[in-house]
Design a protein around this nucleic acid. Structure first.
Lengths: 252, 252
DNA sequence: GAGTGGTCTAGACCACCCT
DNA sequence: GGGTGGTCTAGACCACTCC
């Protein structure tokens, strides 16, 4: 390549190309929303094969810097991320709005199915047919959340209908259902197949997940679910209660 | 391919191959620790080019199912994940031990540097030279945590030395430094360059991160840092204080 | 030396978008 | 029709491991 050594020492060609494109993004030469130079041009410019450029750009899509639209070009992604408190993380609609974004909820499906996702088994959910509500939440038309929630089949239709319109917690609140207990597991994971479609991200795209288990009284029931978000669109803030700090390391 | 339609309908060839290999792992035909059939053999078996097989296997490495050792073969990864409470998440050594794993801490480096990572800027850290302690924590010789912590340069050498041997919180505790305040941001992110080396994972591998900000009294200081873990090795459990649930949705 | 995974290339084909 | 990204292929080369 004519751009000798340029940025960062990645030994391989596609690493060098990746670093250079990455540099052009961070320095603002390629701006968010813009299409970058086409693969063919880049291959010519760098003096490498087009496949090597494709490899570099593919990696940059996996790391969230670029996104491609087949037939059009490869674009620099907008860079904004919401940070929401975990406590209200499940009722982030107000949170989204207060941050200056326009929230939107779109129900994907309401089905009856068994829980197959193994990660939810940490909550020991019932192994029977449950009502599954799936929805997507947008901020300014950008999808930031994909949620699947599992509720008992005898749940009132009215409440289930609400589930598709807002976060579970909000829906329960509207119907005065008291939440008795609530636990979370937070983890990261490659985007699920559905999430890949919804978020337009490639196979191994990192996502932040919140798995939850709610227990309500009056009526008594257990609700579990998964909230999945692209890593570059949402983060959680947590401020452990100060009382807990002193309890730390009490194990065994 | 002779294995007609096999599993899951991915339209493209490498998706079909990926699904089939994935199936062989989940059904136990390829077992954790085992080497899978070589690329050349798979290409022959499926009747596709070796590059297509490589693509499929590469994707499976990105999703944590496989790991490769150049010159030897491609192996099925062991599947175990620690779930630790966020409160004690930073002093997980006892946690690791109580789960039946042998913990080990390895100090990587102690340097003086400015904070460059933009994600830490949410904590408004001081923009001056800080002491940076980097370390890796293992469970049964498997690296599960890569931590970078930034402390004031006037920190006592003895304490800094402790930082390299245990979690920050534990080190402070040992020296009776009181933690006044503590806040976390939890997010996901593609593995950083150093994490890729430490964890032997590819470029876009999903990791779970805990960014923290500690404020201590006697002496008064601010400590920030990042804890990075492979998504398939660690998750966090959080149980919001029950008092907080009632406060939910109070926004605006 | 045979086998392995990883990189790189040249070139073909397709589906798509925009005139 | 010309440009774009995405898939697939055949084949070459390298560094590595194991015997």
């Amino acid at each position: 390549m004519n751009n000798s050594a340029s940025t960062s020492n990645g030994s391989t060609l596609h690493e060098i190309v990746r670093a250079e494109i990455s540099r052009r993004i961070t320095t603002g030469m390629y701006k968010p929303g813009d299409a970058i130079t086409s693969i063919a041009r880049l291959a010519e410019e760098f003096g490498v094969s087009s496949i090597t450029v494709k490899r570099a750009l593919s990696d940059l899509q996996s790391t969230g810097l670029l996104t491609s639209i087949p037939g059009k070009g490869i674009y620099v992604k907008d860079r904004f991320r919401l940070v929401c408190e975990l406590d209200v993380g499940m009722s982030a609609l107000g949170n989204i709005r207060s941050l200056g974004f326009q929230p939107k909820v779109q129900r994907i499906s309401v089905t009856k199915e068994r829980i197959e996702d193994v990660t939810l088994s940490v909550f020991n959910p019932p192994d029977r047919l449950l009502l599954c509500v799936r929805k997507v939440i947008y901020a300014d038309e950008v999808p930031i959340v994909y949620e699947s929630s599992f509720v008992p089949t005898n749940m009132s239709d009215k409440i289930v209908d609400e589930f598709g319109k807002r976060f579970i917690i909000d829906a329960l609140k509207r119907y005065k259902v008291a939440v008795k207990e609530m636990s979370f597991i937070i983890d990261a994971a490659p985007a699920s197949q559905e999430a890949q479609r919804v978020f337009s991200v490639p196979n191994s795209y990192p996502t932040l997940r919140r798995l939850y288990n709610l227990k309500t009284s009056a009526p008594t029931m257990s609700i579990v679910g998964i909230i999945e978000s692209p890593f570059d669109r949402l983060a959680c803030s947590v401020r452990p209660g100060s009382g807990r700090i002193s309890k730390m390391n009490k194990k065994k």
